[in-house]
Design a protein around this nucleic acid. Structure first.
Lengths: 125, 125
DNA sequence: CGGTATCCGACCTGATACTG
DNA sequence: CAGTATCAGGTCGGATACCG
């Protein structure tokens, strides 16, 4: 047991993995970003996000709602209207997400270059 | 096209998705955390991480190496020794990751509570 | 020791069709 | 409009066996 790299880090990691995998999945961050500024309705989001299937949008929204990351408000009109909006919880995530986005923006070119170089080296071998 | 939520955000998101999904996958963050402080050898990491299969460790290490997030150094000894170490790139990611970890630590209890409440409500219905 | 190859089940994702 | 149901393909992740 190394005191310099204590085990608790890994235990935390285990607890946090569900949060990290949410952030890492294909649509979550994009959907949350789409809701910054103002609430959106289902098909409105489908159009704005672009490329997402109806099912994946429904699933992702349900998962976020379950986590308390957004609210689902049904307006009993005809045709039915359902609005999705961010919560305090998801808004508090904006800061860390932005940090990550900034990092990605600063390093994505390098990363893609690294990938190309790695693949080229492998192809040569 | 809304000027309040400009499209470029989504285009960035598309470019960054490969980075986000790396962070979100099951083992990447844990492996990177394991390497903070000092380099590690293959089976050493397998023991420390715990629960990871040999194949997934190899795959994840290869993906990280491809991105330039770690170096792979082979010492031509018998038996062979291979050391993995962080790079400047992966070390620069430590800050944003820590932010995210802090956020997760602060809110994980609430999130898990939300999930339980949501599931209970669904089960009742 | 440090991998790669193969197989397999589970899950993720999308397309399509259908419902209130 | 806002979903759910069903099916099909692909990917993820682990177990096992084998190689240098």
């Amino acid at each position: 047991m190394e005191l310099t790299t204590p085990e608790p880090l890994h235990m935390e990691c285990g607890r946090f993995s569900s949060v990290l995998s949410s952030i890492g999945d294909k649509w979550t961050v994009m959907i949350v970003l789409t809701l910054t500024g103002r609430p959106r309705r289902f098909n409105e989001m489908k159009r704005v996000v672009g490329g997402i299937s109806q099912q994946m949008l429904a699933r992702t929204l349900r998962a976020l709602e379950r986590d308390g990351m957004l609210t689902r408000t049904v307006h009993p009109t005809v045709p039915p209207q359902v609005e999705y909006a961010l919560t305090d919880l998801s808004r508090s995530l904006a800061g860390p997400i932005r940090q990550l986005g900034t990092w990605a923006g600063a390093h994505i070119d390098r990363i893609e270059g690294n990938r190309s170089a790695f693949d080229a080296a492998r192809a040569a071998a």
